[in-house]
Design a protein around this nucleic acid. Structure first.
Lengths: 217, 217, 217, 217
DNA sequence: TAATAATCGAGACGGTACGTCACGTCTTGGA
DNA sequence: TCCAAGACGTGACGTACCGTCTCGATTATTA
């Protein structure tokens, strides 16, 4: 979590000294996103961000550990609340279709390059990996859990469904295609994924068998 | 494809001049892998590889575009033929279990960091992405195809099974956990994945319906 | 002259607002001298002084133009009145010996590094050069003048002795050795210098000749 | 001593690798001197030198520890051999006058600021102090020794004259006025200095007395 | 047996960005 | 009006690697 979240978390604390410049913060984030959109992540370095934002490098380093955190903050700010984005069509298949198609479409368009870059960054920077996972990935997975929770209440899904596995089955292949580029992120893929997810929810033979076997030991 | 494959591909052409030093090639690859294992991918740069290999930087640049390609060459050399690694237990579930457990185990141990780094690298370098996909990922997917092909012959899997989707359902979640770190790469996960894959093979309702609908348009 | 001398010079003027904190002033000077003694002049910067003094940077900048001025103020405060330090042994040679030995000894020990640093600073900052010359160097030269003045009254020195030249002959070589480090600042050197000074006082051939020659033109 | 003297010292050694670029070396030195003459020593930093020379910072750091060393190299290159610059008029007074007037005149004009800056630099950097002393100051003192040596051969100076002291009496006051700015570096000063030096050569009472006293102990 | 040609080690080169330091100024709330 | 706290834009630092470029030396094929 960025230090810059402090003020949001504790707006009451009247810390001494000159307060953080909201204008600089905004300029930095906008500068970073502009460079990202126009020149790509490879061109996104602190010096360029600072120059374009009319800000000193020191000011950036004071609040963000690296450029990736700035992008993360911008994305997280855009990220609406779970309730807002979790579709609620009345059926599991409907919810999943809505979710997967939206996700896949966003990644096939402008979101793709950003997510690819941030995930790459996370492989080299454990601090960022942590922030990325908790602030973005968990939000996505939370949507899946909400959908599956509702499906369980409706009786569409067994009470002991492995929600984590289902979330992996949905998001894993999407990430896989996004990063590896061996297949399209299109409608056909979205339909197939939904089928796979539903099939996974219903079919639990091996797991049940194995649990029984383990219980017998 | 690396330039260094030229000699393997065309051993007959006896170009003039001093031939490539096999010793330097070996030293470079070993140096790279040593640094990778001991200091991590972040420390893997051409200067360090050259210094440790007792080789000039020019020699490296002559044969590899970047450090990632050296690692890729090392991994690809280790990669056995498909027939060798594709398990053949007689049943789809048996093959999948064998494959997934082996894969997950390898990634949970020493292979993990290397694959994470190379996939990250691929996001920033399209040339490397291409090489990585064709030389490593396709080999993995080929194993899946071989297993599914045999399952179809045995009647365990419909003739119109979407092999690509099933491969995605298996490898996607593995990659997801490897890169995102939200869950363990363990036996339980492997069993769950196999279930999901088999469920996907059997359940094709949505896809069939959709195809029919599309045909009706 | 430092702004901080204002209050000393004009204690009557009761300017409005909160008066200057004597405690802060003391803390700043002590902090500066502590850093200077322990970490050297290179480590003496405003931020370090402020941090150690528990004072804001602004408070320092309000009263001193740079760190060098703080040190100068500390040294000038230590500097006793001329009458106090000008030796009066009854003979020119005695006075000179006393003065030179004291000076050389002080510079060979703790005063050396401070003077070296301040003189260096003066080369880059004309304002400080002016302050340093008038507040420290002139005090030293005044001692010489006092000694030479007494020698003239005693008849030990010609009435037209070039006091400035003699002061240069005494202090110049000391400074030279202090800054250049080609020779020791020891007793032998002190004796030699006194001889040179006395010789200079007595011998005025060239100057007299030249003046005569110039007058003839 | 700069590493860049290596090639001059050992032109025969055919070291491996790309040889040092003579053009870059020249461009760097010229760039440094240009900045020094036009913008002053305060503006002389590595980045500016590199930019103006069309050279990378690394290339400068490879060969010189700091900007001061570049200037020193330029000055030392200009410094003619001792025999060339040591005046030989036939008399001690003539030689001294020639030397002192030349020196004082040069420092009063363009050499002054450079020497002031380098001497200041030497106070903060022991490595540079050493280089400055051995490469420049010793050359100057060598001239004095040559003059005094000849004077001794002619019988103008006692055989036991303390050459070091006389050199200090000549150069010390010059340095003093240059750095402290309390007096002019003009002809009058030059004449006075020569008188002081000659007086010092002739008058050795205290030293002789003291040596006798010490011998008696 | 030479000439030609490609490789090798060493290492210097221009270049880009890094993350840090200290500067001197500014903006708060409080004394 | 001063004070502490501390954020700000500025400018330079010295370092790390990048990918390219000479060097002299080595090792093959070709003439």
């Amino acid at each position: 979590m960025t230090q810059s979240d402090l003020e949001a978390a504790q707006p009451s604390k009247p810390r001494a000294g000159r307060p953080r410049s909201a204008e600089s913060r905004r300029a930095i984030i906008q500068s970073a996103m502009h460079i990202l959109q126009n020149d790509g992540y490879a061109a996104l370095n602190i010096e360029a961000i600072a120059a374009r934002a009319g800000v000193s490098k020191q000011t950036i380093y004071r609040w963000w550990p690296s450029a990736a955190f700035i992008v993360l903050e911008a994305l997280a700010a855009d990220m609406p609340e779970q309730e807002t984005i979790a579709p609620d069509t009345g059926s599991l298949k409907g919810d999943l279709l809505e979710l997967v198609r939206t996700t896949v479409r966003a990644l096939a368009q402008r979101r793709g390059p950003v997510y690819r870059a941030l995930i790459a960054e996370a492989q080299a920077d454990p601090r960022f990996a942590e922030a990325f996972r908790t602030q973005l990935m968990e939000a996505h997975r939370g949507v899946m859990r909400a959908i599956l929770g509702r499906a369980q209440l409706r009786g569409e899904s067994p009470f002991d469904t492995d929600q984590e596995l289902v979330a992996d089955v949905v998001y894993g292949p999407i990430l896989y295609r996004l990063l590896n580029g061996h297949g399209e992120l299109d409608e056909t893929f979205a339909f197939g994924l939904v089928d796979a997810a539903i099939a996974t929810v219903r079919y639990r033979e091996t797991a049940a068998t194995r649990r029984a076997a383990e219980a017998a030991e």
